[in-house]
């Protein structure tokens, strides 16, 4: 039982920890929570696929400190994010904004899915329509050839 507990604790300790250091944290838990939330949405521009909340890079740390300073100074969450966007561009946002330049990005998959669904529906409709129709009756000429073939086979 004790071994299991220790194993569980070790496993939990191995979970990814945020890079925020105690010295960076704000005394006000509400502000700190906002800072964490903002940091999770901002890209570390050095490592590119981590948020600044996850990254140990010095620049990410400097950005975390900056986010906190701005919050303490009374900036809204949007103002903090907008400041960094004005410096680094939309690239620093891990989740792209919904705007004219990102329309294709956001709506593209839905448009393609709709188109594909429409094509699929049209395809299956046409197929069931053709398979359900009874074949046209044989013409006199065809009847005669059929009979000739059958007679030939028996003889």
């Amino acid at each position: 039982m004790r071994t299991a507990t220790v194993a569980l604790l070790l496993a939990l300790a191995a979970l990814p920890a945020a890079a925020v250091e105690p010295a960076e944290m704000l005394a006000d838990p509400a502000l700190e929570a906002r800072a964490r939330e903002i940091s999770k949405g901002l890209r570390c521009v050095v490592c590119q696929n981590q948020s600044i909340d996850d990254s140990n890079a010095e620049l990410a740390q400097a950005m975390r400190v900056l986010v906190r300073e701005r919050l303490v100074a009374g900036d809204s969450d949007e103002a903090v994010v907008d400041y960094l966007v004005s410096r680094y561009g939309d690239f620093v946002l891990l989740k792209p904004r919904f705007q004219s330049t990102t329309l294709v990005l956001w709506l593209g998959p839905a448009v393609i899915l709709t188109l594909a669904a429409a094509v699929a529906v049209a395809f299956y409709r046409r197929r069931t329509a053709t398979t359900r129709q009874p074949p046209p009756p044989l013409s006199d000429e065809e009847q005669r050839r059929l009979r000739a073939l059958l007679d030939d086979g028996s003889g």
Partner: peptide, 13 residues
């Protein structure tokens, strides 16, 4: 030292 100006310039490296 604390990257203040670097961030203002949008420096990545």
């Amino acid at each position: 030292p604390d990257s203040r100006a670097a961030i203002a310039f949008g420096v990545t490296g």
